[in-house]
């Protein structure tokens, strides 16, 4: 088996301030990795470097493309990167507004991504959009409504449908459950868990919620001040944390 993603010595500074420094990991097909850490720990910077939204200062991000095998996404051209972003990657933003077109219908939001990869048959695009709305538990009769008319949880599920419709292999998620009510969060988590397993998707999920990673992630990376301080099997990092910061993080969770 070849790794889907290999990150080597990735660093990003904002001026003199360290965003994230010397990050290394290998993600295998079907593996879900969580990244936790407090605000400002560099987890979103790292995710955005992986997605090509930010250019890292140093390091390599080798992605196993379907067509051309392993390629460094840092040095590839912008059009190549955009094509990967539309076909092989999914990026789920914390705020669905950043990942959706709010003025376009739900069906249009899903169909747009299909059209971007060459789909032209209106009936088929609509049928696929309906199918995906159903999979993310949005009533398909609301296909012509705009996301403005949807609740926060529905918008987030629509964003997920829009991202997954083209069959990506790597999903990058930035706080996918942030800002949602806990009841809505539970539904979304259960849905994500099912989708990730059924589609055999690899994913990197950034969150500050340890319960989310416990449920979704196979392995975990803990970041502090731009550095990875601990990583390993999710339940090992949470049940037997080694680093002082991880111990503090785990013991700070309030019991309900």
């Amino acid at each position: 088996m070849t790794p889907l993603l290999k990150v080597e010595a990735l660093s990003k500074h904002y001026g003199r301030h360290l965003g994230c420094g010397d990050v290394n990991f290998t993600l295998w097909p079907g593996e879900v990795m969580g990244i936790v850490g407090e605000s400002g720990s560099g987890k979103s910077t790292l995710l955005n470097c992986l997605a090509g939204h930010l250019a890292p200062d140093t390091g390599r991000v080798i992605f196993e493309t379907r067509a051309h095998g392993p390629r460094d996404t840092v040095t590839m051209t912008e059009p190549e990167r955009r094509w990967l972003a539309r076909t092989e990657w999914a990026f789920v933003h914390q705020n669905p507004r950043d990942g959706l077109r709010m003025g376009v219908s739900a069906g249009g939001n899903v169909g747009e991504r299909l059209m971007a990869v060459g789909a032209r048959h209106y009936g088929e695009i609509r049928a696929q959009a309906e199918d995906w709305l159903g999979r993310v538990e949005i009533d398909p009769t609301r296909i012509d409504e705009r996301p403005r008319a949807f609740s926060g949880g529905m918008r987030q599920r629509l964003q997920i449908a829009r991202n997954l419709v083209t069959g990506p292999r790597l999903a990058l998620m930035d706080e996918p459950t942030g800002g949602l009510d806990v009841s809505v969060q539970a539904r979304l988590l259960d849905l994500l868990r099912g989708l990730v397993r059924r589609l055999g998707l690899s994913a990197v999920i950034v969150t500050h919620d340890l319960a989310v990673v416990r449920l979704l992630a196979d392995r975990l990376m803990v970041m502090k001040d731009g550095r990875v301080v601990e990583e390993g099997l999710t339940d090992q990092v949470l049940d037997d944390p080694q680093h002082a910061y991880t111990q503090l993080l785990v013991s700070s969770v309030l019991q309900v």
């Binding site: 390993g232 099997l233 339940d235 090992q236 049940d239 037997d240 080694q242």
Partner: peptide, 9 residues
């Protein structure tokens, strides 16, 4: 037991 299961290092 947990060390064998792997959630303790």
């Amino acid at each position: 037991m947990r060390m064998i299961w792997g959630n303790y290092r």
